[in-house]
Design a protein around this nucleic acid. Structure first.
Lengths: 361, 361
DNA sequence: TCTCAGCGTTAGATCGTTCCAATGACACTA
DNA sequence: TAGTGTCATTGGAACGATCTAACGCTGAGA
């Protein structure tokens, strides 16, 4: 393994295609072909060129490639600062998956700062104007997000993490099936013997929140369980959540499915206030698997979003879109998964007792 | 303000320097000068060129600039996935500040995936080989981090977020003064009337942990308070922390300064176990201001790291290094700040009572 | 009177790569 | 033998910017 990467520091500039060509006794174009269309070369020539490349530690210059091919192999991603204490707590996983998936396809992720307020188009325009990126990954796509339409209009490939909940769907996106998550949460609780299961969600109108509520509702109906009067709503704040869930606890629910870990924590507080214990007296399931969930006491069962998979899928869809701009839009809905912890113990000793034939223990 | 940015989509390719030159009635080079050294142009020519640039919506092509100047205006940053439940909870703030600061200087941040284990050099080598980046920002610099030496050896500009705790200092870095943070924590507690203040840290030998311990120690000494037998240690895990702090509580400490929020949470558990209440009976201060801190009950007072400032400083130092490779290394130590919450209430009704003249209220 | 530095601008070469059209060598059919 | 086609390779021209050296002219210093 020669791999003398030091050659770049041995003499003046870096190793160029022409230098490799001279050494291998071929023309520059042949070296280019050896890299981009190896099947055009005769095997022995290919071997010779490859050897020269290896010995000299040659790496093509991205700048020159970009200039010539008009493709930077860069994907733009706008980082927004976390608004407050919540949201995207696992962004690093997403970003890691994103760059890893990009890397494997020969792309890289280029960051740029999105202003804290709503996402503006300035940053996107600038990156495009300078032909710096081939496409974008959007995240935190809100309702009525102007970016999708703006990008679509000028034919820029993009993929969103998150559906558009209102208006016409534009472009490709990857999202997590919140309904499926809360559905699974209900399934889990029913299997543990619960029948009076409340849902603590956000005020109606937020797409994500309504989606999560819907999964709870459909699972309840499937099991013939009542949903009327079992649904509470609150903004994503502990104290609001605490008071919002009280009536449900008064009504004797034995389990709560919350639309976020923050809301679930509100349940914890409401329970403690009435000297009940989360987990022991009332089971609680959160959503998002925030870092906090694992260290609460009792540790919080929660629905986790497969952030790595989201990252991979974003890159996959984006590459497909860049390969074929006219392909029909692709939308991927990923399944979240339930992380069972201590807030949903296996034996449910609540007032109603187990009603299904779940094997205890 | 014409600013017809649509011109790039009106006809074939993008607007080039030559096109602007033709329109302004000057040579391409003059347009280049208008952008890079405006003082070379006669004011009227400058105005004419600028007008043409504006009307045509011209933006220089980064690829061409990079090819010619051999400077990509890109800064590399390796994203590591969060190891487990801990660390880098506020990475998005850091990244946002980083890209914003870079943007303002005409640079951008390029991500690449660092393997989960130790940081390898492969990624850095590849980015350098292709001349994709002008410098690096390193984070999570561990003791004996090989990257610093490797980069320094080949003259690549870099700046680390985090000191090197062992071995010779290499290159520029930005770090947060942990000792100053714990010092401030002790100051705060003393002002509230506490005198028996314990420190719960990590096992000796970790640079960061020892640094934080040192601040507690020096502040205690300054106030003539005893530190012997007041220092507990534990790995960053709730249960370990809980049992580690027990002896201190038995010894009657009225406040605990912890080296991390996780350890602080261990204190909470230890206190509850003995039917004491964090905040009411014993004050607790954590470190890092993780998202969890604000939602614990009682909410946890904690030392927050100025992540935005760290980001800015990283970029500042890196740019300085790129401008002058032979300048003496610069090291920046930023002050963390105390976020006062409910775990350190103003009135300390512990067994010893307030000893200083803090206004009760 | 002669030299020379400075003025704002320009022509031409250059960075390292890929695209396009054309090359020569070779085997195949007619 | 000439014609046709395929294959592997090549020369030259972009891509869009910046760098260097020089343009013709003016006014100051010798």
């Amino acid at each position: 393994m020669p791999r003398s990467t030091s050659s770049s520091s041995s003499k003046g500039g870096p190793v160029t295609l022409a230098m490799v060509a001279r050494r291998a006794g071929v023309s520059p174009q042949t070296v280019s072909n050896a890299l981009n269309s190896p099947d055009l070369l005769r095997p022995e020539t290919l071997e010779r060129v490859r050897h020269a490349i290896d010995v000299m530690g040659y790496r093509p210059s991205r700048a020159a490639q970009t200039l010539r091919t008009r493709s930077s192999k860069l994907i733009g991603y706008g980082v927004q600062p976390t608004p407050a204490g919540s949201a995207t707590p696992v962004m690093d996983r997403f970003l890691h998956a994103l760059s890893q998936a990009a890397d494997e396809a020969g792309y890289r992720i280029l960051l740029f700062a999105c202003p804290p307020g709503g996402p503006t188009l300035d940053g996107y325009e600038e990156l495009l104007g300078q032909h710096e990126v081939d496409g974008f990954v959007l995240s935190g796509t809100a309702r009525q997000d102007p970016r999708q339409a703006w990008l679509a209009q000028r034919g820029v490939p993009f993929v969103g993490f998150g559906r558009m909940w209102s208006g016409r769907q534009i472009g490709d996106w990857v999202d997590v099936d919140g309904a499926s998550g809360t559905d699974a949460a209900v399934e889990h609780l029913v299997a543990l013997g619960h029948r009076r299961i409340a849902f603590l969600g956000w005020p109606r109108g937020s797409g994500v929140g309504d989606d999560r509520a819907e999964g709870w509702q459909r699972a309840m109906r499937r099991h013939g369980l009542p949903t009327r009067g079992r649904r509470a709503q609150s903004v994503d704040d502990i104290d609001s959540a605490r008071s919002a869930i009280k009536p449900m606890l008064d009504a004797g629910v034995t389990a709560v499915v919350a639309a976020s870990d923050m809301l679930a924590l509100g349940c914890y507080h409401a329970l403690r206030e009435r000297e009940s214990a989360p987990g022991r007296d009332v089971s609680v399931i959160g959503f998002d698997d925030s870092p906090t969930a694992a260290i609460l006491s009792p540790t919080l069962s929660t629905i986790a979003q497969p952030m790595e998979a989201v990252g991979w899928e974003c890159v996959r869809l984006l590459l497909a879109r860049m390969a074929d701009a006219s392909a029909p839009p692709e939308r991927v809905l990923l399944e979240p998964f339930l992380v069972v912890r201590d807030s949903t113990p296996a034996v449910h000793p609540g007032p109603s007792g187990p009603t299904t034939s779940t094997a205890a223990r």
